[in-house]
């Protein structure tokens, strides 16, 4: 059984003639971490609220953990943990009291709620601070407390709406690592949203890309990230007397040496070596040979080499390419 299935899910706010926040969305989410990516207003939060049974869709169907969103909202909300994108913590409560309370509201007996609240607060890294009023928490601590309340009842699925919102880079990395652990070590399927494509590619097994309510792409992260064999080169230096810039000079020189390449922005993109049957152990040698060739070429031209790096597929590119169509 899949974790989430939607079928032509459509949501229009207000009058039915308005723009659709979700437009005929059909997706399938399995266990592990699933990233839901999209720009502001793409419909990420709308989708989560519909899946929780808080909003009813204009048309289409969806099932969460096998329950119909239209008729079994209570069963879904019993089994799912939810972390909203905006503030949702009463400032005059201690984190421990609050998480215990949310556990009870989710159906845990009092003793179990106390035990699990302490556990879960430790997992999110609030063991020391749990007796403090949440009004005095930093943004990072608030996000952790929000995550704790979504985990306290040991949900069968957890939906996290922009958990990295407002965090500095270090706290962002911690949060992402935590989300990954929830999906992989805790064994709880995760649906996590972000408008930053780059951060979800690191932690997700599967990525769904939304664009103004449309499904842009839904694929296993591996297919985005596999080594493409493409090498990117960046050079710095003087233009030729005839005005040819450094990058073009480098490109021409590489082509003259039989390397298939082209300009890409300020970079030079070198096509992968397509010769079949290169054994695994020789791949590194081939790569080194190319690197040497590039270095020698740059040296001959008197250009500085800024970088030579293999390109891994990036979600940004996927998004840009698809959106440009």
């Amino acid at each position: 059984m899949g974790v989430i299935q939607t079928e032509a899910l459509t949501k229009r706010y207000g009058s039915s003639s308005g723009v659709a926040a979700l437009d005929g969305l059909t997706i399938d989410v399995d266990a592990g971490v699933t990233g839901l990516v999209g720009a502001n207003g793409a419909g990420k939060s709308t989708l989560i609220k519909i899946l929780l049974g808080l909003l009813s869709p204009t048309s289409g169907d969806a099932r969460v953990l096998g329950h119909d969103i239209r008729t079994e909202g209570e069963a879904i909300r019993t089994a799912v943990g939810y972390m909203p994108e905006h503030d949702c913590l009463p400032p005059d409560m201690r984190a421990i009291d609050f998480v215990v309370h949310m556990g009870q509201v989710s159906g845990l007996p009092a003793a179990a709620a106390r035990e699990r609240a302490a556990d879960v607060l430790r997992h999110v890294g609030l063991a020391e601070e749990r007796y403090r009023l949440m009004g005095g928490y930093s943004t990072g601590m608030k996000q952790r407390a929000k995550l704790a309340q979504a985990l306290v009842h040991d949900p069968a699925l957890i939906m996290l709406d922009e958990p990295t919102n407002g965090l500095d880079p270090a706290a962002r990395d911690d949060m992402l690592a935590l989300v990954r652990r929830i999906g992989h070590d805790f064994g709880i399927p995760v649906l996590v949203t972000s408008h930053l494509l780059g951060e979800l590619e690191r932690i997700s097994d599967h990525v769904v890309v939304l664009d103004s309510g449309h499904l842009l792409r839904s694929e296993a992260t591996q297919s985005f990230l596999g080594d493409t064999g493409v090498v990117l080169v960046e050079v710095i230096g003087d233009a030729a007397p005839d005005g040819t810039p450094a990058q073009a000079r480098m490109g021409e020189a590489l082509a003259a040496r039989g390397v298939s390449c082209r300009a890409r922005g300020a970079l030079i993109e070198i096509d992968p070596d397509r010769r079949d049957g290169i054994p695994e152990e020789q791949a590194a040698a081939v790569h080194d040979a190319l690197r040497d060739l590039v270095r020698d070429t740059a040296a001959d031209l008197g250009l500085g080499l800024v970088r030579v790096q293999p390109q891994t597929g990036r979600l940004e590119d996927v998004f840009r390419e698809e959106a440009a169509r």
Binding site: Y82, H86, D87, Q149
Partner: peptide, 18 residues
């Protein structure tokens, strides 16, 4: 007022009771 102001209402409504 406190539920609405702090936003905790959205947590309560995402819980079983409705």
């Amino acid at each position: 007022t406190r539920d609405l102001r702090s936003g905790v209402i959205s947590l309560y409504l995402a819980r079983p009771l409705g």
